[in-house]
């Protein structure tokens, strides 16, 4: 039981954009491992495939190629397999306002998962004396909504954004999952609420041993809560490592550029990336970042003698296991010891 809780192996997800168009390669070969009790941040700009990757890891999207392993076993896509998986892995969506049915009270929203999985009957069969009301109360309390009974009758539109996100989290927690995938959990919330929700995720990890995969475009957020960071660009992970490694010594020019525009980081000169925003139906040859790479444009790659490789040689997929890695020819040339 020492392996990672969640693992992706050479995951590929393509969407067909229509007749005569190239398929969109939203996830284009990803290896990723999330250990038990670990908080991993998946960082990347809009459209890089991070949400698709998160949905694929939850089984909401079927990969064309590659496998998702949960607890060492490959994910099955039969309805029974998926339903069993849902009890152990839950999703938290970006927009808590849309994620709650406006016609359901908080109680019903939180009890929904319990009813779908007949959790009360299951617990009673195991000899635990409990009721739906108890489980809903407990979930709301865990998510920091106290007293839970005071929220039963309220509707989503009567709550603040932070409270709504807590309701969504409570709905996920009610099933007592092992893994939470949070897709931009705070990006639609006020800055003052963000800290509270992030603190809640950290507390849940400490108290319940939850494993959390946070999908975000915000490196600052990743810095605050993640143990490890995976940076994604155009369907592939370009740099992975512990938070300290990635943020203090970023190797990939893309990570450097992302980091330079985080407001808290003042010592780095901001890098504004040039060129078109990437199109996942036309992934460039060579390094997929080379048309926008400031190291290539600024001549650093030329000086290190790898500029030709950047333009023509595709990079291997970064392995899920191991320390700090970056998919960059320049980074490799600079540290010849790394494989």
């Amino acid at each position: 039981m020492n392996g990672p809780l969640l693992e992706a192996r050479e995951l590929q997800v393509r969407f067909h954009a229509g007749r005569g168009k190239r398929p969109v390669r939203a996830v284009d070969g990803v290896d990723l491992a999330v250990g038990r009790g670990e908080i991993v941040a998946l960082v990347g700009e809009s459209g890089c495939g991070k949400t698709t990757l998160a949905r694929t890891l939850l089984g909401l999207e079927r990969p064309q190629d590659g496998t998702v392993l949960f607890d060492g076993a490959p994910l099955g896509y039969g309805s029974g397999d998926l339903k069993r998986y849902r009890r152990r892995a839950q999703l938290i969506l970006q927009d808590p306002t849309g994620a709650l049915n406006p016609r359901q009270t908080v109680y019903e929203s939180v009890a929904e998962g319990l009813r779908i999985h007949r959790a009360v009957a299951r617990k009673q069969r195991e000899g635990i004396e409990t009721s739906e009301v108890d489980l809903v109360s407990a979930a709301l309390a865990k998510a920091g909504l106290r007293p839970p009974e005071g929220f039963f009758m309220t509707y989503p539109h009567e709550l603040s954004g932070g409270q709504r996100q807590r309701v969504v989290i409570a709905g996920a927690l009610a099933l007592e999952p092992e893994l939470l995938v949070a897709d931009e959990p705070v990006s639609s919330l006020d800055a003052s609420i963000r800290g509270e929700i992030l603190a809640l995720l950290l507390r849940l990890r400490d108290e319940l041993g939850l494993t959390v995969l946070v999908v975000t475009h915000d490196l600052g957020l990743a810095w605050n809560i993640a143990d490890r960071i995976a940076v994604m660009y155009l369907g592939r992970i370009v740099e992975v490592g512990s938070t300290e490694q990635v943020l203090q010594a970023p190797e990939h020019p893309y990570t450097q550029a992302l980091l330079s525009v985080v407001p808290e980081v003042e010592e780095i000169e901001p890098v504004v990336l040039a060129g078109e925003p990437p199109d996942p139906s036309r992934i460039p040859d060579g390094c997929r970042f080379h048309p926008r790479c400031q190291a290539l444009a600024g001549g650093a790659a030329e000086a290190a003698g790898v500029a030709d490789r950047c333009i023509s040689d595709p990079l291997p997929v970064i392995a899920a296991h191991g320390g700090h890695r970056a998919a960059c020819w320049l980074a490799e040339a600079r540290s010849p010891s790394s494989p």
Partner: peptide
């Protein structure tokens, strides 16, 4: 989407 993630048929 949330309902599907919760396992709703």
């Amino acid at each position: 989407e949330r309902a599907r993630a919760l396992g709703a048929g």
